[in-house]
C-alpha cells in the first residue's frame, strides 16, 4: 500500500542557515501524525514546505504518489492539502460565512460571462454554495457565528473557524499548526476529541504540530521528533516518549516526561 504522504530527505537552506535537513515522514490514509520538537526546531518550516509556501532546496514531497515540489501554493491545495496557521490567518474583515465561501473557491465553477450576467444557473450555484457553507459551519458548531466578522470572534472560535475553513477546501490531508496554542487543559481535552471526530467525520488524514504532549500522545498514531532542523526520532507515541535522545533534547539529561 502506498502512503498518502511520503516525504523524502526534505531540506531547506536560507542563505547560510540549514533550517531543515533531510526530513522524512510517511503518513497513511486515515492516520494522525504529529511533529514535535523544541521551539525553533523547524516544524513550521516543514509545514510551509508541505504547503508550497517555501520551495524546498532538497528532497521530494510525494502526495498520493505524485511529487508536488515546484508547484505553486494553490497547487498544493488543489491536490488536497489544507492547513491552519500557528498565528491564525483568517480573512479578518470578512464574516465567518465568507471565510468558508472563499475556501470553497475550487468547488465553484461557472464561466466568466455567465457570472457577469448572473444567470439562473449561477444564481442557483451561489444559493447551493451558501447552504454548503452554512452546513460546514453547522457541523463544527459555528452556525451562530456565520454573519459575524471573523476578527470579532473569541479566540477559541477563531481557531475552530480556521479549521472549518481548511476543511471547506475538501482536503485529504489536514495540517494543523499548534491547534492547542493558548488553550487551557479542559479545552485541550475537548480539542483531542474534536480532532479524532474530524478525522472520522471528514475522512481526512491529519498531521499536526503541537507542544502539548498530552494531546500528541492522546491522538497521534505516529510521532516525528525534530530538533535544530534534524529528525531526531520517530515512531509510536509510546516509543518516542521513552526514547532517551528525545528526552534529552526536550528536558536535558536526566529529565522525564
Amino acid at each position: 500500500m502506498t502512503a498518502l504522504l511520503e516525504v523524502r530527505s526534505l531540506g531547506i537552506r536560507f542563505g547560510g542557515l540549514q533550517a531543515v535537513d533531510s526530513f522524512h515522514c510517511r503518513l497513511n490514509q486515515g492516520e494522525i501524525g504529529g511533529i514535535i520538537g523544541p521551539n525553533g526546531a523547524g516544524k513550521t518550516t516543514i509545514f510551509n514546505m508541505l504547503t508550497g509556501i517555501y520551495p524546498p532546496t532538497a528532497g521530494e514531497i510525494f502526495f498520493r504518489g505524485e511529487n508536488l515540489v515546484g508547484r505553486p501554493i494553490h497547487g498544493f491545495t488543489e491536490h488536497g492539502i489544507a492547513r491552519t496557521f500557528q498565528n491564525i490567518r483568517l480573512f479578518k474583515e470578512l464574516s465567518a460565512l465568507d471565510n468558508i465561501k472563499i475556501a470553497r473557491h475550487m468547488k465553484v465553477k461557472y464561466g466568466f460571462f455567465p457570472g457577469l450576467f448572473r444567470t439562473e444557473a449561477v444564481s442557483r450555484r451561489e444559493n447551493e454554495l451558501e447552504e454548503e457553507c452554512l452546513s460546514i459551519l453547522e457541523r463544527l458548531s459555528l452556525a451562530q457565528y456565520a454573519r459575524h466578522k471573523a476578527s470579532g470572534l473569541p479566540y477559541g472560535v477563531q481557531r475552530r473557524l480556521e479549521i472549518a475553513r481548511a476543511l471547506a477546501t475538501s482536503p485529504e490531508l489536514l495540517l494543523l499548526d499548534e491547534p492547542a496554542a493558548g488553550m487551557n487543559p479542559q479545552e485541550v481535552d475537548q480539542l483531542s476529541k474534536t480532532i479524532l471526530w474530524i478525522r472520522d467525520e471528514f475522512k481526512v488524514t491529519i498531521l499536526l504540530i503541537e507542544h502539548h504532549m498530552q494531546l500528541v500522545m492522546g491522538v497521534c498514531d505516529h510521532v516525528t521528533v525534530v530538533s535544530f532542523g534534524k529528525l531526531l526520532a520517530e515512531g509510536k507515541p509510546d516509543e518516542v516518549k521513552v526514547n532517551p535522545v528525545v528526552v534529552e533534547a526536550y528536558l536535558g539529561k536526566g529529565g522525564k516526561f
Binding site: H74, F91, H105, G115, R165
Partner: peptide, 24 residues
C-alpha cells in the same frame, strides 16, 4: 459577488491565506 469577486477580496485580506485556500 461571484466566486471570482470573493477570490479578489481574499487577495486583499491575506494573500498567503488565499493561496492556501486554493486561490490563484
Amino acid at each position: 459577488y461571484s466566486f471570482r469577486g470573493r477570490a479578489c477580496v481574499s487577495c486583499r485580506e491575506d494573500e498567503l491565506a488565499a493561496e492556501t485556500m486554493g486561490v490563484n
